[in-house]
C-alpha cells in the first residue's frame, strides 16, 4: 500500500522524457495513468528509483485522423477511447473493447499505451489492437519506428519496445464501414481481467461469405495473439463454418492455468467465445 521512495520527474515533451530515460537508464520507469505501475509499486513488486511522468505530455494524448489513419496517443485514457465519436464510428471494435476494461475508475485513468506496454496476458486491449491490425509507434533518441501489433507482443509482460523507447501512439487503418466486429470477454470474477477475451473483425463478400477475418485473443496464453488458424479456416466460407473454425483458436496454444480456470477450461472458453464473437461480428457485418 506504500510505494518505496523514488525521484519524480515530470516530462513536458517526448523529447524530454527520452532524455530522462537515457539519463536514468534501468532505474527509471515511465508513468502515464499509472494503473499498471502504481499497483505494482504499492506492493513493492516494482521499486523504480526514478519515475518519469509522461501523463501531461500533450503530444501523447488525443485521437486524430491522419492520412486516412486514426492515431491514438499512448496517454489517451480508456474512457476517451470508449467515448470518442471518431473511434466509435471508425474503430467500433476498439471502443467496444475499451468499454469492457476494468471499471469506470480504471478507464478514467488507464491509458492505451500503458496497457500495451505492460503486456499483461489478461489485458483486454491487445486482442482488439491485434484484430484491428494496429501499429505501435515507438520513439527513442535514435529515432522513431513502427511495430505491427502482430510483432509487438513477445511474451508474458514483454514487448518489442526496447529500453530507451517510448510507446507514443497506436495507428489504425479503419476497417471498411461494412465490416462487422465484436469483443467478448469472460471476466475473472475477482479482478475483472479477461480469463479469455476474443476480438473478431470480419468483412463479407458479395455472397455474404467471409472475405477477411481477423481474430485477436487475450487471456488464453502468456501473450495475446492472432488466431490465424481460425482466420484461414474461414476464408471464403459462410456462417456454417464458424463452429468448426472457432475450435482452431487453441491450435498450438499453451493455455494458462490458475485457480480461476484450468488450461482446459480456458481453452474451451476460448473456443466458445471465438464462435460467439464471430457470430456476432457476422451478424453486424454488411455484404
Amino acid at each position: 500500500m506504500f510505494p518505496a521512495p523514488f525521484e519524480y520527474h515530470r516530462a513536458g515533451s517526448v523529447k524530454e522524457a527520452l532524455s530522462m530515460l537515457r539519463q536514468f537508464g534501468d532505474d527509471a520507469k515511465l508513468l502515464a495513468g499509472g494503473h499498471s505501475l502504481v499497483p505494482m509499486m504499492k506492493m513493492r513488486l516494482a521499486t523504480p528509483a526514478h519515475l518519469i511522468d509522461i501523463g501531461s505530455v500533450r503530444e501523447l494524448s488525443g485521437i486524430r485522423e491522419e492520412g486516412g489513419k486514426i492515431v491514438i496517443g499512448a496517454a489517451t485514457t480508456h474512457a476517451q477511447v470508449e467515448t470518442s465519436d471518431l473511434v466509435r464510428r471508425k474503430l467500433g471494435l476498439l471502443a467496444e473493447c475499451a468499454a469492457l476494461i476494468g471499471d469506470v475508475q480504471v478507464r478514467n485513468r488507464g491509458t492505451l499505451g500503458g496497457s500495451l506496454a505492460h503486456a499483461d496476458p489478461a489485458a483486454d486491449y491487445p486482442a482488439a489492437v491485434l484484430a484491428l491490425d494496429g501499429e505501435v509507434s515507438l520513439e527513442s533518441e535514435s529515432g522513431a519506428r513502427t511495430v505491427k501489433a502482430d510483432d509487438f507482443f513477445i511474451d508474458l509482460m514483454t514487448t518489442a519496445a526496447q529500453p530507451g523507447e517510448i510507446v507514443t501512439a497506436v495507428r489504425f487503418t479503419p476497417p471498411a464501414p461494412a465490416a462487422g466486429y465484436a469483443y467478448l470477454k469472460h471476466r475473472q470474477p475477482a479482478s475483472g481481467f479477461a480469463l479469455v477475451g476474443i476480438a473478431a473483425l470480419v468483412t463479407l463478400d458479395g455472397k455474404g461469405n467471409f472475405q477477411s477475418v481477423r481474430v485477436g485473443v487475450t487471456g488464453l496464453c502468456a501473450k495475446a495473439f492472432r488466431a490465424k488458424a481460425v482466420e484461414s479456416a474461414l476464408a471464403g466460407k459462410g456462417r456454417d463454418a464458424i463452429a468448426q473454425a472457432a475450435a482452431h483458436v487453441t491450435d498450438g496454444a499453451d493455455a494458462l492455468s490458475d485457480i480461476h480456470a484450468s488450461s482446459e477450461f480456458r481453452s474451451e472458453l476460448a473456443r466458445v467465445y471465438t464462435r460467439r464473437a464471430l457470430e456476432q461480428a457476422l451478424a453486424r457485418a454488411k455484404s
Binding site: P189, A190, S191, G192, I259, H260
Partner: peptide
C-alpha cells in the same frame, strides 16, 4: 481481492 471474488 484480485483473486478472492467478493461479488460486485
Amino acid at each position: 481481492l484480485m483473486d478472492y471474488a467478493v461479488p460486485k
